[in-house]
Computed example of a mutant assay.
Amino acid sequence: MTDLRCTYCGEDGLQAGFILDAESPKGFGRWVEGALERGIFGGAKLAGRPKWEIEAHRCPNCQHLEMFARRRA
Protein backbone atom coordinates (compact mmCIF):
# COMPACT_ATOMS: atom_id res chain seq x y z
CA MET A 1 0.00 0.00 0.00
CA THR A 2 1.44 3.33 -1.01
CA ASP A 3 0.36 6.94 -0.85
CA LEU A 4 -1.70 6.44 2.29
CA ARG A 5 -3.29 9.51 3.87
CA CYS A 6 -4.39 9.72 7.51
CA THR A 7 -8.18 9.64 7.75
CA TYR A 8 -8.01 11.64 10.99
CA CYS A 9 -5.82 14.66 10.13
CA GLY A 10 -5.17 14.25 6.38
CA GLU A 11 -1.35 13.94 6.65
CA ASP A 12 0.47 12.07 3.85
CA GLY A 13 3.20 9.48 4.36
CA LEU A 14 1.93 7.02 6.93
CA GLN A 15 4.64 4.84 8.50
CA ALA A 16 4.22 1.08 8.02
CA GLY A 17 4.27 -1.29 11.00
CA PHE A 18 2.44 -4.25 12.54
CA ILE A 19 0.59 -5.28 15.71
CA LEU A 20 2.79 -7.42 17.96
CA ASP A 21 1.05 -10.28 19.79
CA ALA A 22 3.57 -11.97 22.09
CA GLU A 23 1.09 -14.77 22.88
CA SER A 24 0.62 -15.72 19.23
CA PRO A 25 2.82 -18.54 17.91
CA LYS A 26 3.65 -16.35 14.90
CA GLY A 27 4.30 -13.25 17.04
CA PHE A 28 1.95 -10.88 15.22
CA GLY A 29 -1.74 -10.08 15.41
CA ARG A 30 -4.25 -11.56 13.01
CA TRP A 31 -7.84 -10.72 12.12
CA VAL A 32 -10.10 -13.79 12.17
CA GLU A 33 -13.37 -13.87 10.25
CA GLY A 34 -16.58 -14.39 12.25
CA ALA A 35 -17.68 -13.95 15.85
CA LEU A 36 -15.43 -15.15 18.67
CA GLU A 37 -16.09 -18.75 19.67
CA ARG A 38 -14.18 -20.27 22.58
CA GLY A 39 -12.95 -23.85 22.87
CA ILE A 40 -13.07 -26.02 25.98
CA PHE A 41 -9.86 -24.45 27.39
CA GLY A 42 -11.04 -20.86 26.79
CA GLY A 43 -8.96 -20.10 23.69
CA ALA A 44 -10.45 -18.93 20.42
CA LYS A 45 -11.56 -21.61 17.96
CA LEU A 46 -9.52 -21.00 14.80
CA ALA A 47 -9.65 -24.24 12.80
CA GLY A 48 -10.96 -23.74 9.28
CA ARG A 49 -11.50 -20.00 9.72
CA PRO A 50 -9.88 -17.47 7.38
CA LYS A 51 -7.06 -15.52 9.06
CA TRP A 52 -5.62 -12.26 7.82
CA GLU A 53 -2.40 -10.45 8.78
CA ILE A 54 -2.91 -6.98 10.22
CA GLU A 55 -0.91 -4.13 8.70
CA ALA A 56 -0.80 -1.03 10.86
CA HIS A 57 0.25 2.40 9.60
CA ARG A 58 0.96 5.28 11.98
CA CYS A 59 0.51 8.93 11.14
CA PRO A 60 3.72 10.88 11.93
CA ASN A 61 1.66 14.01 12.61
CA CYS A 62 -1.15 12.90 14.98
CA GLN A 63 -0.08 9.29 15.80
CA HIS A 64 -3.44 7.92 14.59
CA LEU A 65 -3.29 4.24 13.54
CA GLU A 66 -4.80 2.99 10.30
CA MET A 67 -5.13 -0.81 10.09
CA PHE A 68 -5.66 -3.04 7.08
CA ALA A 69 -6.17 -6.81 6.81
CA ARG A 70 -4.11 -8.72 4.21
CA ARG A 71 -4.87 -12.37 3.38
CA ARG A 72 -1.44 -13.95 4.07
CA ALA A 73 -1.74 -15.59 7.49
Rank of each mutant, 00 (worst) to 15 (best):
G34W: 11
A16R: 08
C6H: 00
R30I: 06
I19Y: 00
E37H: 10
Q15W: 15
G27S: 06
C59T: 02
A56L: 12
G42N: 08
E55D: 15
M1V: 12
I19R: 00
R58N: 03
K51S: 05
L65C: 04
A73W: 02
G48T: 02
R72H: 11
I54Y: 04
F18G: 13
C6K: 00
L46P: 01
D3V: 13
L14R: 00
L65A: 01
E66D: 07
M1H: 08
C6E: 01
Y8D: 06
C59V: 00
R38A: 14
Q15K: 09
C59A: 04
M1R: 10
K51L: 03
L36E: 08
N61K: 08
R30S: 10
R71H: 13
K26C: 05
E11N: 15
R30V: 14
R30M: 13
W52N: 07
T2C: 12
K45V: 13
E53H: 10
C59S: 00
W52E: 08
F18W: 12
F41M: 09
E33W: 09
A73L: 05
L36C: 07
S24E: 07
P25D: 13
P25A: 11
R58V: 11
H57Y: 08
F28D: 07
K51A: 12
E33G: 05
